[in-house]
């Protein structure tokens, strides 16, 4: 089995341009939908995992960020995923939803976004810049805070009411040279065994409620 990792959008674009593959797993329903619209899928996509967003700050905490409210303080260096990257889109939605909290205020998202110094092309790039202490904070998936990463960063939870739960669909590609094996792989990922492995890495189960 060979894995080809990349931003969902990049993988979808590459598949559309004729890159070969058996299974497409996306961190965003939008790009799976895009793949379906372009006729790249054999059959329907199924959800195999869900993920929530967390704010991460370096353990050295150069921006002295202790709560979500601190993110709106002027002069901070915040990195987010670019708007076209799922994590970036979700981050912006979550920030807007946090504005409903009177303690944060309706202009919360605008004030946080004014602190954005870089729009990264993958969520791993967000993790990297926070991990190295170059950025004061970033927004990533809970699953990105792996044990190795957690040595350098601290996560600040985003309340479930304002959080965006990413849904991860998986599907067999029409161009697959071994559709049987491809379907077996999808079945394994969605099986209780596969879900246990995903849960270990902080993914929410596929059937989690919002």
């Amino acid at each position: 089995m060979r894995f080809n990792y990349g931003g969902s959008q990049a993988l979808a674009m590459r598949s559309a341009q004729g890159a070969k593959g058996d299974v497409f797993a996306s961190a965003d329903e939008r790009w799976m939908q895009e793949a379906a619209t372009r006729g790249l899928l054999a059959g329907d996509a199924t959800t195999f995992a869900r993920n929530r967003l967390v704010v991460i700050v370096p353990r050295t905490n150069p921006g002295r960020i202790r709560s979500l409210k601190d993110l709106a303080r002027r002069g901070l260096k915040i990195v987010l995923g670019a708007d076209a990257v799922p994590v970036g889109r979700y981050s912006r939605i979550a920030l807007r939803q946090l504005g409903a909290d009177p303690a944060l205020g309706p202009d919360y998202a605008a004030r946080v976004l004014a602190n954005v110094v870089s729009e990264e092309e993958t969520v791993k790039a967000v993790v990297g810049k926070v991990q190295l202490g170059e950025a004061d904070a970033g927004i990533v998936y809970a699953s990105d805070v792996t044990p190795a990463v957690a040595r350098f960063v601290r996560a600040i939870e985003i309340p479930a009411g304002a959080n965006v739960i990413a849904t991860y669909p998986i599907a067999v590609l029409r161009g697959s040279a071994q559709p049987e094996d491809a379907r077996a792989f999808v079945a394994l990922v969605t099986s209780p065994e596969g879900q246990r492995v995903l849960a270990k890495w902080k993914f929410l189960p596929a059937d989690a409620q919002h």
Partner: peptide
């Protein structure tokens, strides 16, 4: 560039 300076 994107790794060192970022993208804005």
């Amino acid at each position: 560039t994107i790794t060192f300076a970022g993208n804005l």
